[in-house]
């Protein structure tokens, strides 16, 4: 496959996933806003990596400004509408590698959202809007899964999706790392834990796996080390490693630094212990993980996109 096409497919996977992740993050902030802990609007900015751009533009955090910045603002490349536009632009460049279902699903998402005005997503309309964003991305992922030829094109989309998801889970956890300190307990904390789990579609999963009341250490374990949860760090990184291996197998075993690094990260998660992670401080550990994930993204691009 053309390197440029692989690049577009990889970023197609990343941008669609990012749109849904921003929606998930905003949903958490909106839910917690009702509980009087207004700082969550700020946290979601940090989690999505949008804080510097936001502060430069708005200076002060208000719910409306955060929602506008993360949903509509064309100056924010990680905003939901920007993500759809970037995903579509990437898709357009590899139109031939996509199925009609994927393309028309994405094209329609873009057409639906691109002219969204504040009255479509501010205030009471926000949750419904965010649900639609998540639904459109689920539709796209489903179309990719159900209709795409199992070739390299499919694998690069999967690679982008899995890597972006790994990055997102680590960021969501990091935003709430102080709430996950062992021993903390209270109404506010409880609501926070629920919100974190919901943001990665894992509240039900928690109950199914642990069958116990919410506990910060278990939440961290679920989101970091449990392979059953599709958005856990270990699940996402295992998928990245698996996909990289499949690409390598299709090319007669051609491998590079990205394969080594991905394997190393996955092994550290697969065989890691929660007590070790918590011992040095969750925040420090997550900061390192986010850094290594970014490093992995760079290594993938270097090997398959620039080095081709």
């Amino acid at each position: 496959m053309l390197s440029r096409a692989a690049d577009s497919l990889f970023w197609l996977g990343r941008y669609t996933e990012r749109a849904a992740n921003v929606a998930r993050g905003l949903n958490v902030a909106w839910r917690l806003d009702g509980l009087g802990t207004g700082e969550d609007w700020h946290r979601i900015l940090v989690a999505s990596g949008c804080e510097p751009g936001f502060m430069e533009k708005h200076g002060k955090v208000t719910p409306e400004a955060v929602v506008d910045f993360l949903v509509r603002d064309p100056d924010n490349p990680s905003g939901i509408l920007s993500c759809f536009a970037a995903a579509r632009s990437n898709a357009r460049q590899v139109r031939t590698a996509l199925t009609v279902d994927m393309w028309s699903g994405l094209n329609e998402s873009w057409a639906q959202f691109r002219n969204s005005a504040p009255e479509d997503f501010q205030g009471e309309r926000l949750p419904e809007f965010l649900d639609r964003v998540r639904e459109r991305v689920l539709l796209f992922n489903g179309a990719a899964q159900d209709t795409m030829l199992r070739g390299e094109a499919f694998l690069f989309v999967q690679l982008g999706t899995a890597l972006e998801r790994a990055d997102n889970t680590a960021r969501i956890l990091d935003v709430k790392h102080d709430m996950l300190k062992p021993g903390s307990n209270g109404t506010v904390e409880f609501a926070q834990w629920q919100a974190i789990l919901q943001s990665v579609s894992a509240l039900r999963a928690y109950h199914w796996i642990f069958r116990e009341r919410l506990d910060p250490a278990r939440i961290a374990e679920l989101l970091i080390l449990r392979p059953e949860l599709p958005r856990s760090l270990v699940a996402c990184h295992s998928r990245v490693t698996e996909v990289l291996e499949m690409i390598a197998a299709g090319q007669g075993g051609r491998r590079g630094e990205c394969h080594r690094l991905s394997g190393e990260i996955t092994a550290s998660l697969r065989y890691g212990k929660l007590s070790d992670i918590l011992e040095g401080g969750l925040h420090d550990w997550l900061t390192r993980m986010i850094g290594r994930t970014a490093q992995l993204g760079g290594a993938i691009e270097e090997f398959y996109i620039q080095g081709g």
Binding site: M1, L2, S3, R4, I247, R254
Partner: peptide
């Protein structure tokens, strides 16, 4: 040549 993921 064209640049591909598997080399030129």
């Amino acid at each position: 040549h064209m640049r591909t993921t598997a080399g030129p």
